[in-house]
Simulated assay, not measured.
Amino acid sequence: MTVRTLWSIYLLLLGPTLPLWASHISCINEDGKPVDWYILYKFPKHMSYDVARTGLEYMFMDSVTPAWKLSKYFINMTESALGQTLQQLYQTYEAKNSVAYVMYNDGPPNKMNYSWTHGHSKGFLLLEESQGFWVIHSIPEFPPFPEDGFSYPSTGKSYGQAVICLTFPYDQFAEIDRQLLYYNPNVYNCSIPKPFQGELFYVQILCAGSQLPPAPWNQSLVKLQSAKAETFFSFAKTKCDHEDIYVAWMAQKLQTDFLVESWQRKGHQLFSNCSLPYHIYNINRIQTPWNTSFSSYYDHSKWCVSIRPEDQWTCIGDLNYAAQQSKRSGGFVCTQNRYIYTAFRSLVLHYYDCRELHESIYGSHSIVF
Protein backbone atom coordinates (compact mmCIF):
# COMPACT_ATOMS: atom_id res chain seq x y z
CA MET A 1 0.00 0.00 0.00
CA THR A 2 1.47 3.39 -1.00
CA VAL A 3 1.94 6.42 1.27
CA ARG A 4 -0.58 8.29 -0.87
CA THR A 5 -3.21 5.58 -0.38
CA LEU A 6 -2.58 5.48 3.38
CA TRP A 7 -2.92 9.28 3.52
CA SER A 8 -6.26 9.15 1.69
CA ILE A 9 -7.57 6.51 4.11
CA TYR A 10 -6.32 8.58 7.06
CA LEU A 11 -8.15 11.69 5.89
CA LEU A 12 -11.31 9.68 5.24
CA LEU A 13 -11.27 8.28 8.78
CA LEU A 14 -10.29 11.54 10.44
CA GLY A 15 -12.57 13.84 8.49
CA PRO A 16 -15.83 13.45 10.47
CA THR A 17 -14.07 14.18 13.78
CA LEU A 18 -12.67 17.56 12.65
CA PRO A 19 -14.31 20.96 13.25
CA LEU A 20 -16.08 22.35 10.20
CA TRP A 21 -13.33 24.89 9.30
CA ALA A 22 -10.68 22.16 9.45
CA SER A 23 -12.46 19.54 7.36
CA HIS A 24 -11.43 21.38 4.21
CA ILE A 25 -8.12 22.17 2.51
CA SER A 26 -5.75 23.70 5.05
CA CYS A 27 -2.19 23.75 6.35
CA ILE A 28 -1.39 20.34 7.90
CA ASN A 29 1.05 20.01 10.78
CA GLU A 30 3.37 17.10 11.59
CA ASP A 31 0.64 15.33 13.56
CA GLY A 32 -1.53 15.28 10.45
CA LYS A 33 -3.89 17.87 11.94
CA PRO A 34 -5.26 20.97 10.16
CA VAL A 35 -3.84 24.17 11.62
CA ASP A 36 -4.40 27.87 11.04
CA TRP A 37 -0.70 28.42 10.31
CA TYR A 38 2.72 26.88 10.65
CA ILE A 39 6.33 27.96 10.13
CA LEU A 40 9.27 25.71 9.22
CA TYR A 41 12.92 26.74 9.48
CA LYS A 42 15.34 24.34 7.78
CA PHE A 43 18.90 24.38 9.07
CA PRO A 44 21.88 24.82 6.73
CA LYS A 45 24.52 22.12 6.43
CA HIS A 46 27.14 24.38 8.00
CA MET A 47 26.51 24.96 11.72
CA SER A 48 28.85 25.51 14.64
CA TYR A 49 29.40 23.13 17.55
CA ASP A 50 27.68 20.31 15.77
CA VAL A 51 28.31 17.15 13.79
CA ALA A 52 27.94 17.17 10.03
CA ARG A 53 24.33 17.67 8.97
CA THR A 54 22.37 16.47 5.96
CA GLY A 55 20.83 19.85 5.14
CA LEU A 56 17.37 18.33 5.71
CA GLU A 57 16.88 18.90 9.47
CA TYR A 58 14.45 21.61 10.54
CA MET A 59 12.50 23.10 13.42
CA PHE A 60 8.87 24.13 13.29
CA MET A 61 6.06 25.82 15.17
CA ASP A 62 2.32 26.09 14.49
CA SER A 63 -0.87 27.66 15.82
CA VAL A 64 -1.42 24.66 18.13
CA THR A 65 2.17 24.50 19.49
CA PRO A 66 3.50 28.07 19.05
CA ALA A 67 7.15 27.51 20.01
CA TRP A 68 10.16 26.07 18.19
CA LYS A 69 10.27 22.29 18.19
CA LEU A 70 12.89 20.11 16.53
CA SER A 71 11.26 17.91 13.91
CA LYS A 72 11.66 14.15 14.10
CA TYR A 73 11.38 14.08 10.29
CA PHE A 74 13.56 15.37 7.47
CA ILE A 75 12.04 18.05 5.26
CA ASN A 76 12.12 15.70 2.23
CA MET A 77 9.79 13.19 3.93
CA THR A 78 6.08 13.04 3.15
CA GLU A 79 5.47 12.87 6.91
CA SER A 80 6.85 16.40 7.34
CA ALA A 81 4.33 19.22 7.65
CA LEU A 82 5.39 20.45 4.22
CA GLY A 83 4.96 16.99 2.72
CA GLN A 84 1.57 16.43 4.32
CA THR A 85 0.31 19.85 3.23
CA LEU A 86 1.42 19.29 -0.36
CA GLN A 87 -0.14 15.83 -0.47
CA GLN A 88 -3.51 17.60 -0.59
CA LEU A 89 -2.47 19.26 -3.84
CA TYR A 90 -0.93 16.14 -5.35
CA GLN A 91 -4.06 14.11 -4.61
CA THR A 92 -6.60 16.65 -5.89
CA TYR A 93 -4.93 18.47 -8.79
CA GLU A 94 -6.79 16.39 -11.38
CA ALA A 95 -10.18 17.37 -9.91
CA LYS A 96 -11.25 19.57 -12.81
CA ASN A 97 -13.72 21.91 -11.11
CA SER A 98 -13.49 21.40 -7.34
CA VAL A 99 -10.03 22.87 -6.60
CA ALA A 100 -7.68 25.54 -7.95
CA TYR A 101 -3.93 25.64 -7.45
CA VAL A 102 -0.92 27.72 -8.44
CA MET A 103 2.82 27.03 -8.15
CA TYR A 104 5.31 29.84 -8.67
CA ASN A 105 9.07 30.18 -8.29
CA ASP A 106 11.64 32.45 -9.93
CA GLY A 107 13.86 29.33 -10.03
CA PRO A 108 11.39 26.61 -11.11
CA PRO A 109 12.04 22.85 -11.00
CA ASN A 110 12.91 20.40 -13.80
CA LYS A 111 15.84 22.47 -15.08
CA MET A 112 13.52 25.22 -16.32
CA ASN A 113 15.16 28.60 -16.94
CA TYR A 114 15.52 31.07 -14.08
CA SER A 115 13.19 34.06 -14.51
CA TRP A 116 14.74 37.51 -14.15
CA THR A 117 11.60 39.25 -15.47
CA HIS A 118 9.17 37.97 -12.85
CA GLY A 119 9.10 38.53 -9.10
CA HIS A 120 11.79 37.24 -6.76
CA SER A 121 9.11 35.12 -5.10
CA LYS A 122 8.42 31.48 -4.31
CA GLY A 123 5.15 29.93 -3.19
CA PHE A 124 2.07 27.91 -3.95
CA LEU A 125 -1.60 27.98 -3.11
CA LEU A 126 -4.43 25.46 -3.15
CA LEU A 127 -8.09 26.23 -2.52
CA GLU A 128 -11.59 24.90 -2.79
CA GLU A 129 -14.79 26.96 -2.60
CA SER A 130 -14.71 27.18 1.19
CA GLN A 131 -11.06 27.75 2.09
CA GLY A 132 -7.47 26.97 1.16
CA PHE A 133 -3.86 27.72 2.00
CA TRP A 134 -1.09 30.02 0.80
CA VAL A 135 2.52 28.91 1.31
CA ILE A 136 5.39 31.40 1.01
CA HIS A 137 8.91 29.93 1.04
CA SER A 138 12.53 30.48 0.01
CA ILE A 139 13.32 27.07 -1.53
CA PRO A 140 14.62 27.05 -5.14
CA GLU A 141 13.21 24.53 -7.64
CA PHE A 142 10.29 23.70 -5.35
CA PRO A 143 7.66 22.29 -5.22
CA PRO A 144 7.75 19.56 -7.89
CA PHE A 145 5.12 19.31 -10.58
CA PRO A 146 1.99 17.51 -9.33
CA GLU A 147 2.52 14.52 -11.62
CA ASP A 148 6.00 14.04 -10.11
CA GLY A 149 4.81 13.79 -6.51
CA PHE A 150 6.49 15.18 -3.42
CA SER A 151 10.27 15.47 -3.18
CA TYR A 152 12.80 18.02 -1.98
CA PRO A 153 15.47 19.50 -4.30
CA SER A 154 19.18 19.02 -3.71
CA THR A 155 19.58 22.77 -4.39
CA GLY A 156 17.65 23.48 -1.19
CA LYS A 157 19.94 21.54 1.16
CA SER A 158 23.07 23.67 1.65
CA TYR A 159 21.45 26.85 2.92
CA GLY A 160 18.87 27.62 5.59
CA GLN A 161 15.31 27.96 4.27
CA ALA A 162 12.05 29.30 5.71
CA VAL A 163 8.44 28.29 4.98
CA ILE A 164 5.20 29.82 6.24
CA CYS A 165 1.81 28.22 5.54
CA LEU A 166 -1.38 30.21 6.14
CA THR A 167 -4.94 28.85 6.00
CA PHE A 168 -7.48 31.35 4.65
CA PRO A 169 -11.24 31.37 4.07
CA TYR A 170 -12.28 31.52 0.43
CA ASP A 171 -13.08 35.25 0.36
CA GLN A 172 -9.47 36.16 1.19
CA PHE A 173 -8.10 34.68 -2.02
CA ALA A 174 -9.45 37.58 -4.07
CA GLU A 175 -7.20 39.85 -1.97
CA ILE A 176 -4.26 37.46 -2.36
CA ASP A 177 -4.86 37.43 -6.13
CA ARG A 178 -4.63 41.24 -6.22
CA GLN A 179 -1.40 41.11 -4.23
CA LEU A 180 0.05 38.65 -6.74
CA LEU A 181 -0.57 41.25 -9.45
CA TYR A 182 2.20 43.26 -7.74
CA TYR A 183 4.38 40.18 -7.16
CA ASN A 184 4.15 39.17 -10.86
CA PRO A 185 5.31 35.66 -9.88
CA ASN A 186 6.80 33.15 -12.30
CA VAL A 187 3.92 30.64 -12.47
CA TYR A 188 5.16 27.30 -13.80
CA ASN A 189 2.18 25.05 -13.05
CA CYS A 190 -1.45 25.82 -12.25
CA SER A 191 -5.11 25.07 -12.74
CA ILE A 192 -7.85 27.69 -12.36
CA PRO A 193 -11.24 26.07 -13.15
CA LYS A 194 -14.13 28.32 -14.16
CA PRO A 195 -15.77 28.49 -10.69
CA PHE A 196 -12.60 30.16 -9.35
CA GLN A 197 -11.84 32.58 -12.15
CA GLY A 198 -13.77 35.48 -10.64
CA GLU A 199 -11.71 35.45 -7.44
CA LEU A 200 -8.42 34.56 -9.14
CA PHE A 201 -8.63 37.04 -12.00
CA TYR A 202 -4.93 37.95 -12.22
CA VAL A 203 -3.61 34.49 -11.41
CA GLN A 204 -5.59 33.01 -14.28
CA ILE A 205 -3.88 35.48 -16.64
CA LEU A 206 -0.50 34.20 -15.45
CA CYS A 207 -1.78 30.64 -15.66
CA ALA A 208 -2.63 31.20 -19.33
CA GLY A 209 0.91 32.44 -19.99
CA SER A 210 -0.27 35.98 -20.73
CA GLN A 211 1.18 39.28 -19.56
CA LEU A 212 -0.40 40.97 -16.57
CA PRO A 213 -1.84 44.47 -16.91
CA PRO A 214 0.11 47.22 -15.14
CA ALA A 215 -0.55 47.46 -11.41
CA PRO A 216 -2.36 50.68 -10.42
CA TRP A 217 0.41 51.57 -7.92
CA ASN A 218 3.94 50.46 -7.18
CA GLN A 219 3.01 49.15 -3.72
CA SER A 220 0.03 47.47 -2.09
CA LEU A 221 -0.62 46.77 1.59
CA VAL A 222 -3.69 44.75 2.60
CA LYS A 223 -4.98 43.11 5.75
CA LEU A 224 -5.73 39.39 5.54
CA GLN A 225 -7.65 37.27 8.06
CA SER A 226 -6.85 33.60 8.48
CA ALA A 227 -9.45 30.84 8.87
CA LYS A 228 -9.29 31.35 12.65
CA ALA A 229 -9.54 35.14 12.26
CA GLU A 230 -5.88 35.94 12.96
CA THR A 231 -4.69 39.12 11.25
CA PHE A 232 -1.77 39.18 8.82
CA PHE A 233 -0.59 42.11 6.72
CA SER A 234 0.57 41.54 3.14
CA PHE A 235 3.16 43.92 1.66
CA ALA A 236 3.58 43.65 -2.13
CA LYS A 237 5.74 45.74 -4.47
CA THR A 238 6.29 45.89 -8.21
CA LYS A 239 9.67 46.07 -9.95
CA CYS A 240 8.96 49.77 -10.64
CA ASP A 241 9.39 50.50 -6.95
CA HIS A 242 13.18 50.78 -6.70
CA GLU A 243 13.30 51.43 -2.94
CA ASP A 244 14.42 48.74 -0.53
CA ILE A 245 11.28 47.14 0.93
CA TYR A 246 12.77 46.81 4.43
CA VAL A 247 14.26 50.31 4.80
CA ALA A 248 11.89 52.53 2.87
CA TRP A 249 8.55 50.83 3.41
CA MET A 250 8.01 48.11 6.02
CA ALA A 251 10.00 49.66 8.87
CA GLN A 252 8.55 53.15 8.29
CA LYS A 253 4.99 51.92 7.79
CA LEU A 254 5.00 49.67 10.86
CA GLN A 255 7.04 52.23 12.83
CA THR A 256 9.55 49.75 14.14
CA ASP A 257 13.30 49.13 13.98
CA PHE A 258 13.88 45.79 12.27
CA LEU A 259 16.54 43.11 12.62
CA VAL A 260 16.81 41.59 9.14
CA GLU A 261 17.86 38.06 8.20
CA SER A 262 18.40 37.31 4.51
CA TRP A 263 20.93 35.68 2.23
CA GLN A 264 24.26 37.50 2.69
CA ARG A 265 26.01 36.83 -0.61
CA LYS A 266 29.50 38.31 -0.68
CA GLY A 267 29.54 41.63 -2.49
CA HIS A 268 25.73 41.90 -2.56
CA GLN A 269 24.75 42.59 1.06
CA LEU A 270 23.78 46.04 2.31
CA PHE A 271 24.97 47.73 5.50
CA SER A 272 22.65 48.41 8.41
CA ASN A 273 20.72 51.60 7.68
CA CYS A 274 19.86 54.33 10.20
CA SER A 275 19.12 57.11 7.69
CA LEU A 276 15.34 57.17 8.24
CA PRO A 277 13.32 57.45 11.45
CA TYR A 278 13.05 53.68 11.79
CA HIS A 279 16.20 51.64 11.30
CA ILE A 280 17.32 48.38 9.71
CA TYR A 281 19.98 46.23 11.39
CA ASN A 282 21.65 43.38 9.54
CA ILE A 283 21.67 40.08 11.42
CA ASN A 284 25.05 38.39 11.31
CA ARG A 285 24.47 35.13 13.17
CA ILE A 286 21.50 32.92 14.11
CA GLN A 287 21.29 30.70 17.17
CA THR A 288 18.91 27.80 17.75
CA PRO A 289 17.28 26.70 21.02
CA TRP A 290 19.66 23.70 21.01
CA ASN A 291 22.93 25.62 21.50
CA THR A 292 23.97 25.61 17.86
CA SER A 293 24.37 28.59 15.58
CA PHE A 294 25.04 29.47 11.95
CA SER A 295 26.16 32.42 9.89
CA SER A 296 23.69 34.43 7.83
CA TYR A 297 25.98 33.68 4.88
CA TYR A 298 24.55 30.14 4.95
CA ASP A 299 20.93 31.22 5.31
CA HIS A 300 18.65 31.65 2.30
CA SER A 301 15.57 32.58 4.36
CA LYS A 302 14.15 36.11 4.31
CA TRP A 303 12.58 37.50 7.49
CA CYS A 304 12.75 40.40 9.90
CA VAL A 305 11.72 40.98 13.50
CA SER A 306 11.27 44.10 15.64
CA ILE A 307 14.23 44.89 17.84
CA ARG A 308 11.89 46.23 20.57
CA PRO A 309 9.66 43.64 22.33
CA GLU A 310 6.78 46.11 22.64
CA ASP A 311 6.48 46.34 18.84
CA GLN A 312 6.20 42.57 18.28
CA TRP A 313 6.38 42.59 14.47
CA THR A 314 7.60 39.57 12.50
CA CYS A 315 7.66 39.49 8.68
CA ILE A 316 8.45 36.53 6.41
CA GLY A 317 8.73 36.78 2.65
CA ASP A 318 10.56 36.89 -0.65
CA LEU A 319 13.21 39.59 -0.93
CA ASN A 320 16.78 39.72 0.32
CA TYR A 321 18.24 42.81 1.94
CA ALA A 322 20.49 43.45 -1.06
CA ALA A 323 20.91 46.30 -3.54
CA GLN A 324 19.80 44.41 -6.65
CA GLN A 325 16.66 43.13 -4.91
CA SER A 326 15.18 46.63 -4.73
CA LYS A 327 14.49 46.33 -8.46
CA ARG A 328 12.64 43.01 -8.12
CA SER A 329 8.97 42.53 -7.29
CA GLY A 330 7.83 40.46 -4.34
CA GLY A 331 6.50 40.84 -0.84
CA PHE A 332 6.14 39.84 2.80
CA VAL A 333 3.47 38.79 5.25
CA CYS A 334 3.71 40.42 8.68
CA THR A 335 2.13 39.60 12.02
CA GLN A 336 2.09 40.78 15.61
CA ASN A 337 1.49 37.27 16.95
CA ARG A 338 3.48 37.34 20.19
CA TYR A 339 4.46 33.68 20.00
CA ILE A 340 5.87 34.05 16.50
CA TYR A 341 7.68 37.20 17.60
CA THR A 342 9.22 35.56 20.66
CA ALA A 343 10.33 32.56 18.61
CA PHE A 344 12.07 34.63 15.93
CA ARG A 345 13.51 37.29 18.26
CA SER A 346 15.20 34.55 20.30
CA LEU A 347 17.08 33.39 17.18
CA VAL A 348 19.13 36.59 16.86
CA LEU A 349 22.63 36.03 18.23
CA HIS A 350 24.61 38.87 16.59
CA TYR A 351 23.73 41.82 14.41
CA TYR A 352 25.42 44.92 13.00
CA ASP A 353 24.27 48.31 14.18
CA CYS A 354 25.09 51.31 12.01
CA ARG A 355 28.72 51.39 13.21
CA GLU A 356 29.88 47.97 14.38
CA LEU A 357 28.93 44.42 15.28
CA HIS A 358 26.87 44.05 18.44
CA GLU A 359 25.60 41.09 20.32
CA SER A 360 21.83 41.10 20.82
CA ILE A 361 21.06 42.49 24.26
CA TYR A 362 18.71 39.56 24.74
CA GLY A 363 21.44 37.00 24.12
CA SER A 364 20.09 33.47 23.85
CA HIS A 365 17.02 34.10 26.00
CA SER A 366 13.44 34.47 24.83
CA ILE A 367 11.71 37.72 25.57
CA VAL A 368 9.16 37.69 28.39
CA PHE A 369 5.99 39.68 27.91
Rank of each mutant, 00 (worst) to 15 (best):
T2C: 11
T5R: 06
T5D: 04
L6F: 11
G15K: 05
W21F: 05
S23D: 12
I28A: 12
G32Q: 12
V35C: 14
W37M: 15
I39Q: 02
Y41H: 11
P44I: 04
H46C: 06
Y58F: 15
F60Y: 14
V64M: 06
Y73S: 14
F74V: 07
F74K: 15
L82P: 10
L86M: 00
Y90G: 00
V102T: 10
D106Y: 09
W116C: 06
H118N: 07
H120P: 11
G123H: 07
F124I: 08
L127S: 03
S130T: 09
Q131E: 01
W134P: 01
W134H: 05
V135H: 02
I139Q: 08
P140A: 11
F145I: 13
Y152E: 07
L166M: 09
F168K: 09
P169D: 06
Q179M: 00
Q179S: 13
L181Y: 05
Y182N: 01
Y182A: 07
Y183G: 06
N186T: 04
G198K: 02
E199Y: 03
L200D: 02
Y202W: 13
V203T: 02
A208D: 15
S210A: 15
P216V: 10
N218R: 10
V222N: 02
K223L: 10
E230A: 09
H242G: 01
A248G: 12
Q255Y: 05
V260P: 08
Q264Y: 02
K266T: 11
Q269N: 13
L270N: 03
S272P: 00
C274T: 10
S275M: 15
R285T: 13
S293V: 09
S295G: 07
Y298K: 09
D299N: 10
W313Y: 14
G317T: 14
G317I: 03
Q325W: 13
Q325K: 13
K327G: 07
K327T: 11
R328C: 14
S329P: 01
G331E: 09
F332K: 00
V333M: 05
C334Q: 14
N337K: 12
F344K: 05
E356V: 03
L357I: 02
E359Q: 15
S364M: 08
H365M: 02
F369P: 09
